[in-house]
């Protein structure tokens, strides 16, 4: 999967986490006293749950930021990309020519090896017959 799609998926994840967190808060949050609003006291379990939700949101946000940093080639302009493509294309053609040349050398070598094997076998047969 490409980096942009991964980033978009992570963004959708964050949207989902936002909705889930608000839903959980609405469903499970304990009532708060009107008199002592500044001294919020939660049960330990609920406190952990809130902490987990906050961590999840922050972690996703951090992950998105790291994905943004690793987006490929955003520092290059379109012209630079096309120039790179052109140079790579010519380089690719050169390597292809070189590979074809080596292949033809290999074919010649194969012929030579076959002839040599034939020669050696004929030679050894002749020697065997004579001895």
């Amino acid at each position: 999967m490409d980096r942009i799609t991964q980033l978009q998926d992570k963004l959708d994840d964050m949207f989902y986490i936002f909705g889930t967190c608000i839903g959980v808060l609405q469903r499970d949050a304990p009532p708060v006293s009107f008199k002592e609003q500044n001294e919020l006291s939660f049960s330990q379990e609920w406190g952990h749950q809130i902490g987990d939700m906050a961590t999840q949101v922050i972690d996703t946000s951090k992950l998105i930021e790291s994905y943004i940093d690793s987006l490929p080639g955003l520092k290059k302009t379109e012209t630079e990309q096309y120039e790179n493509l052109k140079s790579l294309n010519s380089e690719s053609n050169d390597t292809l020519k070189e590979l074809k040349l080596t292949k033809s050398e290999a074919i010649e070598m194969l012929k030579l090896v076959k002839e040599s094997i034939r020669y050696i076998s004929e030679e050894s047969k002749l020697i065997e017959d004579q001895s």
């Binding site: 490409d2 980096r3 942009i4 987006l71 490929p72 080639g73 955003l74 290059k76 379109e78 990309q81 096309y82 790179n84 493509l85 790579l88 294309n89 380089e91 690719s92 390597t95 292809l96 070189e98 590979l99």
Partner: peptide, 21 residues
Amino acid sequence: YRPHQARETLLSIMTEQIKNR
């Protein structure tokens, strides 16, 4: 930025091909 990424992907594929050759 999808067209930009597509060009970048093409660049990486070509580099890989040259390396393999």
